[in-house]
Design a protein around this nucleic acid. Structure first.
Lengths: 179, 179
DNA sequence: TTAATTCATTAACTCAAGTTAAATAAAATG
DNA sequence: CATTTTATTTAACTTGAGTTAATGAATTAA
């Protein structure tokens, strides 16, 4: 979390189960998470949910497409726990960058980190089986793992809760994964 | 393609079927494509191929992880047609940015575009079926579609050529897709 | 033009994920 | 504590993708 951002942001509290923003909204804000846990997800017309990412303290969430291209936003962000966040408007960020060019570097490195994160997610969805994705998720996200429901984990992996339950059983039998 | 990049890049020619770089290499260069078509792909130990993206004129390809974090690069880039590219070293780019801060904006917008592109790919891999991915690919990439083999298209969609052939048959029967 | 090679389709079979519904288990509530 | 509600597991069945191998079509080379 950057100190310079704190100056231009508004602190906000979102109790567990509240929306930061929703699919279809016009968004012009970025949210820097200071405490808590959230999920960003797509919802289809027939009510299916696909979780894009979990966002935790130290990370930020924004709809690039909405902010940059002015499109209505394509996903929903919901708090899974009580959350303290810093809300920054696009305008405040742009103004601040004008005053303080060093901030461009900060934005640059955030974007770079985001691109790398998305590239890794692409790799996992493209090259790995649901079972492999589950195992690597247990390992890498072990800290938030216990704070999530099977349902949410399944929707993040791109499978149904039923399929995840079967995968967990398989892993238990093999003895590799005792989570 | 940015004029400022042209000054610091070296023009190179890659005939069809040659590698720009390979999985495992240490890369410090970015490549801006001026003409041609390439594929970037992951290769597994047992020889399976997964195509990360196709890159065409006006786009650039680089290994962010390799350049930023100094890791060995995780994918291979191969030319599918004769290609004219502009090779820019990380060092030249960094130097140029020091001299010319405006270039930071250029890099910023490239990164932003990349992040948005990856977000769209994430959406397709997470939320869409192989069949839906195929149909949207036909539609959106119709220009390069005819220049690609079924094999490469399948590996981009995350399925086997056999599965793609079956999908094409299904679509033909329905009559929706006559590609 | 033929032969060789590569690319695409089809068939038969296996396996894992989706779907629906029922059965447990766990958590929240009165 | 008992009850309700929610979360997770299991079962039975369907569907679609992977695998292997054979066939057919299109390209390339001789």
């Amino acid at each position: 979390m950057n100190e310079q951002l704190k100056c231009i942001g508004t602190p906000r509290f979102f109790p567990k189960g509240s929306f930061l923003f929703r699919q279809g909204d016009k968004i012009n804000n970025l949210f820097f998470i200071q405490r808590g846990l959230l999920k960003a997800y797509y919802e289809t017309l027939d009510g299916k949910e696909f979780i894009k990412s979990f966002i935790r303290d130290g990370e930020f969430i924004a709809s690039l497409q909405a902010i940059v291209e002015g499109n209505p936003n394509s996903f929903t962000v919901l708090s899974l726990e009580d959350c303290s966040v810093l809300e920054v408007t696009k305008q405040a960020l742009v103004d601040q960058i004008a005053n303080n060019p060093a901030l461009t570097q900060v934005v640059n490195s955030l974007l770079l980190k985001l691109a790398i994160k998305k590239e890794r997610r692409e790799y996992e969805l493209l090259c790995m089986s649901p079972e492999e994705r589950y195992l690597i998720f247990c390992e890498r996200e072990c800290e938030i793992f216990t704070r999530l429901s099977q349902n949410d984990i399944a929707r993040y992996l791109g499978i149904t809760p039923v399929a995840l339950s079967r995968i967990r059983k398989r892993c238990r039998l093999v003895g590799g994964c005792q989570v």
